[in-house]
Design a protein around this nucleic acid. Structure first.
Lengths: 234, 234
DNA sequence: AATTCAAATCGATATTTATCAACAAATAAC
DNA sequence: GTTATTTGTTGATAAATATCGATTTGAATT
């Protein structure tokens, strides 16, 4: 794992109150409490933030930048489960399981990350039931997302999977039809479960058909309705 | 959905205390409380217990029998996420999301099912933090299971996926090397994300190679170490 | 036992997808 | 600015997998 370099981007958890929906349910004193156990670290693009298999002592919140959340599959291959945006709490799976990371997280661009001690977080769950309920909500949403992802990966052909990937990036991550992609072609392949060569081919095809405009890392979704259609038909 | 036929297999929730780990964390009065909102229904093999898309008002606990938990994918295809055994709480994803079932559950054999009102369950989460924590634990375990399943479905070839499927049934569901399978060949295909024909072919191959013995629905795992190897190499 | 129907089986073929090799373009290092 | 080095691209080929049609088996029903 990349060595920790402390920073001071985010002064304290009371500030986070405004940015993390989950933390709005905490009182001032609870936030102050949480603040004493937190620290912040900067990562350069490409650095590993969480490494699968290592012990999990902290939860992670990206405060600036973008990261990929992936599992290490067979034969060195990665499967990107999702992209992590700022203010999303990462590490739930380790909270109550076996204190191991069952996935890796790596910075796609330079990132600032806030680490929160697991025990402090658990304490909030115990003493604040609204916090616990909101936390459960997020876990269950991720569950439903997983089911959809499994269907995409196992039942859709490459065109459908690439369509799903582009729609995910455009709607959920960048929230825009036009954006500068932080993922490499290999990352897109890892996100959609295919070889890099195949991913490039389908992207080019979509480009030639006028569904998207892709120049290097600049992606412009021209016809999202058609992407939806391709996604549905598999 | 199959019409409800009330039964009296399980007299009250205090009995369940002994069988469901989660419920052992509840007090007598809480169990009594939960009991007033519950009811029990029998299903015949093949009947649908939860139908994807319908509104979710109750959580489900199978008290006898076996069911498949699946999502309806593209072109009428099913993807079996997991097999549901007695005493497992089903329906978490609906608890705090949008009160819709995002998956279907169907009886593989005759089943007795206990339904618990969602609101009563939520009340327990709010007032009993140990219960909430145990519930979160189960959610996060399912999350990790999902990641492994995604890797299997997207990165392993058919031999690896069938090996995963057999190991799952043998170790997690039947907890024995020899068992009478309640899944059809189509179900096995839906569990491992391939066509029925392909599933049959691989199973036959494993049979001829002496890894398993499969006669109709009687499955005997002869060499689970080799199945593990096949699972790992993909 | 005869009938029916769904499930299982299997070979031939078509489709999808990965792999490989070669090369181009972009980026980083010197 | 030149040289490495990665990243992106493409066509040809090979491998994996699905589909289709025909056949068989097995269980349920008459």
């Amino acid at each position: 794992m990349a060595k920790f370099t402390r920073t001071d981007n985010c002064k304290n958890c009371v500030d986070c109150n405004k940015k993390i929906p989950l933390f709005q349910l905490l009182s001032q004193s609870e936030l102050t409490d949480l603040n004493t156990s937190r620290f912040e670290v900067k990562f350069k693009a490409g650095e590993t933030i969480f490494k699968q298999g290592t012990s999990a002592t902290h939860l992670l919140i990206i405060t600036s930048g973008l990261a990929k959340f992936y599992v290490e599959g067979v034969q060195e291959r990665q499967l990107i489960i999702r992209i992590v945006k700022p203010w999303e709490v990462v590490g739930q799976a380790s909270l109550y399981f076996d204190n191991r990371h069952h996935y890796s997280v790596a910075a796609l661009v330079d990132c600032t990350a806030c680490f929160i001690e697991i025990e402090s977080f658990k304490k909030m769950i115990r003493q604040n039931s609204a916090f616990a309920e909101e936390f459960i909500t997020q876990c269950t949403q991720k569950g439903v997302f997983s089911y959809e992802k499994m269907v995409s990966l196992s039942q859709k052909q490459m065109h459908g999977r690439i369509a799903d990937g582009i729609l995910y990036l455009s709607k959920k991550i960048y929230e825009s039809n036009q954006f500068s992609l932080h993922l490499s072609r290999q990352d897109i392949a890892d996100l959609t479960g295919m070889s890099k060569d195949s991913a490039i081919r389908i992207l080019k095809e979509f480009h030639h058909e006028g569904i998207i405009e892709l120049d290097g890392r600049n992606l412009n979704v021209l016809n999202s309705e058609q992407l939806e259609r391709i996604s549905e038909t598999g």
